[in-house]
């Protein structure tokens, strides 16, 4: 599904390397957790995969379903099945959430040569997915993320994911800013999407989220590269030893 080989990335505007030879292989049906301290390159990885401008790939390659991901525009990546749940979902004043979701879903269908949904079909889908995430229709009539609480923003991200049904979900610090109840709702929403055809990359600072979204693999990111990989028990080990120990181990 996703093959990252020796990827190095620097900020376009300053000469600072953020990712430094990162390699990761994610297959369909797998859930990978990427853990790392602040500044290790977690968010950069998610943005580079989603196609945000401002980064320069200096070496390496990224293949998504066998195709060169870095050649695609952000909307093409999304239509191909990549979805990034943002750490800080963007507020877009004036664009109504419901309308946004419909335009996005139908744009993806169009790009893949699939039939677009009619308004009733779309409404049925959204109502179904929203109910599971405890999202009211009233919230969907508001502008995208505008005035949403931290928890509402994260739930709205998972709703978008549930409606768009991507094949690769990248969750960037989805647990940040959530209380335990909201965390459970979000995790349930994510777990409902687990399937043999779908892969997930869960980026997190803390082990807590992984109690709810149990990964198949855990990777430790430090200074722009993966310094250790293991099973889900690695997360617990990391929690006990702290990131400093791993960084030293790697050096």
């Amino acid at each position: 599904m996703l093959e990252i080989n020796n990827l190095s990335v620097k900020l376009a505007e300053e000469d600072r390397t953020i990712l430094n030879g990162l390699t990761l292989d994610v297959k369909a049906g797998e859930v990978h957790a990427i853990m790392g301290p602040n500044g290790s390159g977690k968010s950069t990885l998610s943005y580079v995969l989603a196609g945000r401008e401002g980064y320069e790939v200096t070496s390496g390659e990224v293949k998504f379903k066998g195709e060169d991901l870095l050649e695609l525009s952000p909307d093409q990546r999304a239509a191909k099945g990549l979805f990034l749940a943002f750490q800080y979902p963007i507020e877009v004043p004036g664009v109504v959430t419901m309308q946004f979701l419909k335009v996005a879903l139908n744009a993806q269908h169009r790009a893949r040569g699939e039939k677009e949904l009619t308004t009733p079909e779309f409404m049925k889908l959204v109502k179904d997915r929203a109910a599971r995430l405890d999202i009211s229709l009233d919230m969907l009539k508001r502008a995208v993320n505008v005035g949403f609480s931290g928890g509402e923003k994260k739930r709205a991200e998972i709703l978008q994911m549930a409606v768009l049904e991507p094949s690769l979900c990248i969750l960037d610090e989805t647990d940040s800013g959530l209380d335990i109840d909201a965390l459970r709702i979000v995790a349930d929403g994510v777990n409902a999407l687990r399937s043999p055809e779908r892969a997930m990359v869960v980026i997190t600072h803390y082990q807590r989220l992984l109690d709810y979204i149990v990964p198949d693999y855990v990777h430790v990111l430090s200074q722009g590269r993966i310094v250790k990989s293991g099973g889900k028990e690695l997360a617990l080990e990391l929690e006990a030893k702290g990131y400093a120990g791993f960084a030293r181990e790697a050096a």
Binding site: A50, E53, D75, A111
Partner: peptide, 16 residues
């Protein structure tokens, strides 16, 4: 540009 990227990241082509 953040607004634009967010919309595009959901599959909406840039012009749209």
């Amino acid at each position: 540009h953040n607004h634009l990227f967010y919309l595009c990241s959901r599959g909406i082509p840039e012009a749209e």
